[in-house]
Design a protein around this nucleic acid. Structure first.
Lengths: 182, 182
DNA sequence: GATTCCATGTAAATGGTTACATGATTCT
DNA sequence: AGAATCATGTAACCATTTACATGGAATC
């Protein structure tokens, strides 16, 4: 995945490793972490494999290496983006995909979103089935907090569904948060 | 963290590695994965370090090893559980803690929950500040999907807050999901 | 003149998955 | 009889973090 994220940010514009890291951190840094000790070797690897071109420049006495996706790199990126996300991977993997969905054709994008929605619906059903077996009364502390994370999961799934419905229709986000209290 | 999760499930009852895996998977398997290739060496390590006792038994021709936390193991577990969660770690780390909070004194538990609430409130403010700078009109596909994950984050944070308020007061979960549509 | 930011890289150590390897029991 | 589940372990390989290492530019 990491490889493809990098490719995704340098599809059109050439950037330095430093800038790529900044870009990723600012956009998806909330749930996806990059260390520079991993980034630079990966850039080298991708350039060696000709998924990236590297353009070295001296700018104001500073050594800078600009990377940009090659045709092979773009092909790899789009193949990755078009493939369904492993349901076993966390939410993050799915979010990373969706982050790039604007680059994808509406057909494939809609299909993937549909599939993801279906997956979460399944999850909701499964989790709610478990929750219904749990007596909500006479729970001691231990049971209460163990159970709490189940309800967190159910709520999260419901909210993913609401959000998915929204973005499937590409509705403006100004309408999105109004229902939230607090 | 893995060490402490193991300790947490064998605080009172002795279990086999196989059962420990099952237990973890059934309770937090939705966001925390265990491989047995990691589990068994870890159990051995914890037993070597005297955080676990190991009790070998032959049950119906089957080789079984029962593990249970020692006093040192319990101490380690509670030290971990009582310490604040690294804000840089993902939600999962926090959820794992909360899963065990029933074992913690109300004082420390409330303090940790309070701290976590504060952290998310900060996050909400930060994310909402970013979102306010974004013009919601005239967005192309590319911007739309990039932005969408920001709103997912904001929504998730709001929902964490709602959930946290609920469990801070230990309100019954029967009241919890009613506000969810769909 | 010191600190922060820009900019890149390597390597040791750790962390973790996957595949290999084995064998009994229980269910169909 | 064959499949699924119970039950444990090792080791090669892969992935990742952290620390080490360096130096110029900009800001205060």
């Amino acid at each position: 995945m990491f490889d493809c994220i990098i490719l995704g940010v340098v599809l059109e514009k050439a950037l330095t490793g430093y800038d790529i890291k900044k870009e990723i951190e600012s956009k998806i840094g909330n749930f996806y972490k990059v260390s520079h000790g991993r980034l630079y070797p990966t850039l080298k690897k991708l350039a060696d494999k000709s998924f990236l071109t590297m353009n070295e420049q001296m700018q104001g006495g500073r050594q800078k290496k600009y990377y940009k996706a090659t045709e092979a790199g773009k092909a790899m990126f789009f193949e990755w983006l078009s493939s369904p996300v492993d349901p076993n991977a966390g939410v993050e993997a799915q979010l990373v995909h969706i982050f790039f969905y604007g680059k994808l054709s509406k057909e494939i994008r809609d299909k993937q979103l549909q599939e993801y929605e279906f997956l979460i619906q399944q999850q909701v059903r499964q989790l709610e089935a478990i929750s219904k077996k749990i007596p909500s009364d006479g729970m001691d502390d231990e049971d209460y907090f163990e159970t709490s994370i189940l309800f967190f999961g159910i709520q999260s799934a419901h909210n993913s569904l609401r959000w998915l419905k929204h973005i499937k229709n590409q509705k403006p986000f100004s309408l999105f948060l109004n229902e939230n209290e607090e």
